[in-house]
Design a protein around this nucleic acid. Structure first.
Lengths: 323, 323
DNA sequence: TCAAAAGTGTTATCCTTACACCCATGT
DNA sequence: ACATGGGTGTAAGGATAACACTTTTGA
């Protein structure tokens, strides 16, 4: 980095020195269908949708919006920037090229009618099976992750490092009767990476180390970016009314609850959930009821669009207790 | 944006079409000196330190760290990415060049001994005088901002828009006996910009519109970036132990409290503050005391470095009540 | 009649905020 | 003595989580 004064010179000299960067957008597009959170992927490749940032777009957001809406034929309700990476290099014909990846989180609804060969939706728990605690602590976590993480912590030579590893693992995964914190998605993935328990960190498992833990792989660092997106969304739903971007125009309170549970990966206390949603005036009755799935018919609700103005800033609360 | 398959081709064709981007880093470096939050600026120019991202740095963070540490001769304690912008264009000799600005927040301590011609520190409330509520609601807010914002809201033609403006202003600035929320720094700045009450939005004040509101101007969108950084820091101190990055090695609890108050722009309830800090075991006594400023000598404390490991994830609490 | 879901009422607990008060030191 | 800052005890209020129980439908 230089002072402002030297900045201009540096930049016109760019092409001589073959120093340039290119910018990619990477999108984490989320929908919730049949109570499962899903992520938009490209082809069969387990890659997040991405591509070069084009000059004709006014801004990063508008570029992303245009592209996604073209491909999914569904408006992108909510878009938020996640993170910008520049740690990777790409080698071109004659130049070393720096690639800057700007990642975004977007929320939509899955278009049921469409079958596209270029993209598809996949459940996010395919990539992170240890993150779904709706039916209790998943056995993958208990039987596979726990012992391997313990072993990794214990294999450290210095006592300080052992203690540090044990503590980080305990906090992230809720060991030693700590509570499970569903927001720590990225920390957990990074610990698994650091412990080389995830296939992306193929430092030694193919040459004698331990095999990777279950969970679908993605190209490059896309799984890490997805983890970032999930973590952000899990935090966000607790204080901003973004869940509604994932809902159909009208819905029952249980459907809304199931969506929240799908995202958070944990169950919610039903009576308290309903109260909280209604107290906050986030929704209004449509007058209709639904009598699908056995039981007393449920009132249909619709999101009160006006709260978007009121609450872009103010907040939403969700009770995330044990069910 | 394109699918992955077309990505490679697009990129090698970059130089022919003169389409390339360049990347800038922009840094919001904060220190707190004598109970005032200060920001590192360049020269006399009211600009944040910035410069091109250089290829020889391993990552964005390391590039920023190296540069700042070279110039301030003080280690950068905490660094966090703020936001990436690409909305501006810069015109080169023969090309239109897209500039991507990646902004960072960094925390240090101000080096007292040093006097550099290339950079200096300036109180952040010079730029945002309406943000300092430590001595009560500032008169700038009461006497100047309030009537102008009301007027702007009322001048809207459609009733819906009027209502929307009134509501957003009321939430952001705490009108109609709403509480002041110190975290909404960016929303407030954006409202002032939208209302053209800030010199950056010089749409009409020099041709007959209202003059800008008090508050020091910065070049380009730097004041907006600073607002983003302040907002982020004000939120962060409430749940992560980052204040300590701004403190000298040892300090009294009142000094710590004054630092928090300087950042938050509001007073804190002393007894509760002390309890909360001590209960959380964030600090330990050094054994020494300080008897500077009249009154009973205060115990000196030091930050417990071990909590960095424990709490990178877990949290810190601060009581931000009325004092 | 039972299962399944929709709802209501109330209590226990904890955290936040505030109030009241005493202690130690320098001038 | 009094001003200034250090420091402790405790109670009021609100938010959250939990428990217990009633209602309405379809099979």
């Amino acid at each position: 980095m230089q002072d402002k004064t030297t900045l201009a010179k540096k930049q016109s000299g760019r092409s001589d020195r073959s120093q340039a960067v290119s910018a990619d957008l990477i999108a984490v597009i989320i929908a919730v269908t049949n109570g499962e959170p899903r992520v938009l992927t490209i082809g069969q490749t387990n890659a997040l949708p991405s591509g070069p940032f084009e000059l004709d777009h006014r801004s990063l957001q508008s570029g992303l919006r245009a592209w996604v809406e073209r491909h999914t034929s569904h408006p992108l309700g909510y878009v938020e920037q996640l993170y910008t990476f520049a740690d990777r290099d790409r080698i071109d014909d004659e130049h070393v090229q720096r690639v800057i990846s700007i990642s975004y989180l977007g929320l939509t609804r899955e278009e049921q009618t469409e079958r596209s060969p270029t993209h598809g939706w996949r459940g996010w728990y395919d990539y992170f099976p240890w993150e779904d605690h709706r039916a209790g602590v998943p056995s993958i976590l208990l039987d596979i992750l726990t012992p391997r993480l313990q072993a990794w912590a214990d294999e450290a030579d210095e006592p300080d490092m052992r203690h540090d590893r044990r503590q980080r693992v305990a906090i992230a995964f809720g060991f030693d009767d700590r509570d499970w914190n569903e927001e720590l998605v990225l920390q957990r993935y990074e610990l698994l990476y650091e412990a080389a328990l995830v296939a992306e960190a193929k430092r030694n498992w193919h040459t004698g180390g331990v095999p990777p833990v279950p969970g679908r792989l993605m190209i490059a660092d896309h799984r890490r970016i997805l983890a970032t997106g999930i973590a952000r969304l899990r935090t966000k739903i607790k204080y901003r009314p973004v869940v509604f971007e994932l809902m159909p125009p009208t819905f029952t309170l249980l459907q809304l609850q199931r969506t929240v549970e799908a995202l958070a990966g944990r169950l919610v206390h039903k009576p308290n959930f309903r109260r909280l949603i209604e107290e906050q005036n986030l929704v209004e009755e449509t007058g209709e009821t639904m009598s699908d799935t056995g039981g007393r018919p449920a009132k249909r609700f619709r999101f009160r669009q006006t709260v978007l103005a009121e609450r872009t800033v103010a907040g939403t609360k969700l009770p995330l207790s044990r069910g």
